[in-house]
Design a protein around this nucleic acid. Structure first.
Lengths: 141, 141
DNA sequence: AGCTAGCGTTGGTGCCACCAACAATATCGG
DNA sequence: CCGATATTGTTGGTGGCACCAACGCTAGCT
């Protein structure tokens, strides 16, 4: 599989990191797509699941999404009746976003997808190795 | 920095892997852009540096690039006089691509950029930790 | 000879991360 | 209180990356 890759690339740590991530993303993206969602959508639903009603700005911070992507994605989720939006009476600049019941059940479904993806992506590692890997990745930041 | 991220995301191994990769990519992309190149271009130049004259198909295999992206990118590199293209007399389906002298010196420059990026991206880890990380990432494939 | 595979071209797509400019609202400091 | 600055959300993008359909030409296999 890796036999043909040129050594100049294969020897780069950043290449190995990006290839591992690309493989992971491929699995995740295919599974999310099959479930009718993309990465931004899951991220937003996940934040709303954790935090309840939250402003778009806080949503973007918690999901690490640019506010323009929050606007685009929330608009799309609202069109699919997965979230609602209302002006925040306490701060008229803000719009509060909240899961609908349909949104909450979609999130549950997607959470299960994400859990399967973790199992699949990290299948080749022991629990110990996986912990080591994730600790090292965190240490990179 | 990570204080605001929602736990549902932060606890996913795939999230941690993609965030680490995104940070790495951000550094790499900024440095390549400053040097006048992008990821696909560096990959192709790197393969040509390793292998010499090579068909586009082999180029794509060695750089892990779709053949259409090979065509697009090689065309662009040729327009910038960094590579040449000629029909392969031994197989008339194939086009051989080769670095020009300008291409070779651009590759040298970019190799130095890539080396600096490795240093920067993995700065937070000891040599031992880095080796462990890269071994684990490889084991994922 | 006929069928299949490989090659390169042309021209895309969606996802992701990133951004300029604007109007409305809130906060801060004098 | 007022002016300056910051925040918020919208509108509408961009480039990089990974991925792909369809075609004509060439090569390999039976």
């Amino acid at each position: 599989m890796n036999a043909d890759i040129t050594a100049r690339l294969a020897n780069l740590g950043t290449w190995q990191l990006s290839q591992a991530s690309a493989r992971s993303h491929k699995v995740l993206h295919a599974r999310l797509a099959r479930a009718g969602a993309n990465g931004y959508e899951y991220r937003i639903l996940a934040v709303l699941g954790d935090l309840g009603a939250v402003s778009q700005a806080d949503l973007g911070r918690a999901a690490v999404l640019d506010r323009r992507d929050v606007t685009h994605t929330v608009r799309n989720l609202q069109a699919r009746a997965l979230v609602t939006r209302r002006s925040d009476p306490g701060d008229r600049r803000q719009t509060l976003v909240e899961l609908t019941a349909a949104g909450a059940s979609t999130l549950e479904r997607l959470d299960a997808v994400l859990a399967e993806v973790q199992t699949e992506v990290f299948a080749a590692l022991s629990a110990d190795q996986r912990r080591t890997l994730l600790n090292l990745l965190q240490q990179l930041s």
